[in-house]
Simulated scan of single mutants.
Amino acid sequence: MGDAQRVWGDVVDTRPSALGAGLVDVTLDARLDAPLAANDRPLWNMWRAGGPATRNEWAPLARSDRYCWVHAANVHRNHAPDRPAAPVYHLDGRHVTDYDGFYCAIGEALNGPGGWFGGDLFWLHENIFDHAGNLNLVWHYSDVARTHLVPGYDRKAWDSAVTFDDLVRFLTEESVNLDLR
């Protein structure tokens, strides 16, 4: 199946699709890993309807919803070959007030509205590796993250908080040409 998403469940109905001849709509009785919270439904419905059309639609969300955004961006990402490398990518840091906000912002910087470029340091490393040491990133408004991503206890991750300095060190060690503005 390659990069395709897998779905497990029982087929309960099939019918010809209104989307075109030769297509079939399939209804599954499938178990979810975890049920959606009521406030997550609008976000997932937006993604199912085609995803965000403009940058920073994630910005007003609370951290738990930003985490859901990053997960939805991963699920709905385009598995086509990467776009040609841009000479410089621009990360809009105005709303990077938490760890998940960083992943929302870097995803959009590299892949446009709703883009995904990782949701943790492992996947960030994997995606940077794909750029073969040729990733030039200008982080605008980096002072916002410097102010918010500080040492402490991360109640969401149940671990030490990932700080601004941790992210900068990580990106630098990954050979990202980083310009903090």
Rank of each mutant, 00 (worst) to 15 (best):
V150I: 15
V150E: 03
V150T: 15
P151N: 03
P151E: 04
P151D: 01
P151H: 06
P151V: 04
G152Q: 11
G152P: 04
G152E: 10
G152L: 06
Y153E: 11
Y153C: 06
Y153D: 13
Y153V: 14
D154T: 15
D154N: 14
D154C: 13
R155M: 02
R155S: 11
R155V: 09
R155N: 04
R155D: 12
K156P: 00
K156A: 07
K156Y: 12
K156Q: 13
K156L: 10
K156G: 04
A157P: 01
A157C: 06
A157E: 15
A157V: 08
W158T: 01
W158A: 11
W158Y: 08
W158H: 10
W158F: 07
W158V: 07
W158L: 10
W158R: 14
W158Q: 13
D159K: 08
D159P: 01
D159V: 03
D159L: 03
S160T: 14
S160W: 11
S160F: 09
S160I: 06
A161K: 05
A161G: 01
A161M: 06
A161S: 15
A161P: 02
A161I: 02
A161D: 01
A161W: 09
A161E: 05
V162T: 14
V162G: 00
V162M: 12
T163S: 04
T163M: 02
T163F: 07
T163L: 05
T163E: 01
T163N: 02
F164H: 14
F164Q: 02
F164R: 03
F164G: 01
D165H: 06
D165E: 14
D165G: 02
D165S: 12
D165C: 01
D165L: 02
D165M: 07
D165F: 05
D165I: 00
D166A: 01
D166N: 14
D166K: 05
D166G: 07
D166V: 03
D166I: 07
L167V: 10
L167Q: 04
L167N: 05
L167T: 06
L167P: 06
V168R: 09
V168C: 05
V168D: 02
R169A: 09
R169Y: 06
R169G: 00
R169F: 02
F170S: 00
F170W: 07
F170M: 10
F170R: 11
F170Q: 07
F170G: 06
F170H: 13
L171N: 08
L171V: 06
L171Q: 10
L171K: 11
T172S: 12
T172L: 03
E173F: 08
E173D: 15
E173I: 07
E173N: 15
E173C: 07
E173Q: 12
E174N: 11
E174R: 11
E174W: 05
E174F: 08
E174S: 11
E174Y: 03
S175E: 14
S175Q: 11
S175C: 04
S175D: 10
S175W: 05
S175L: 10
V176H: 10
V176I: 05
V176R: 10
V176M: 08
N177H: 15
N177I: 09
L178W: 09
L178G: 05
L178I: 13
D179N: 13
D179A: 14
D179P: 01
D179R: 13
D179Q: 07
D179K: 09
D179S: 10
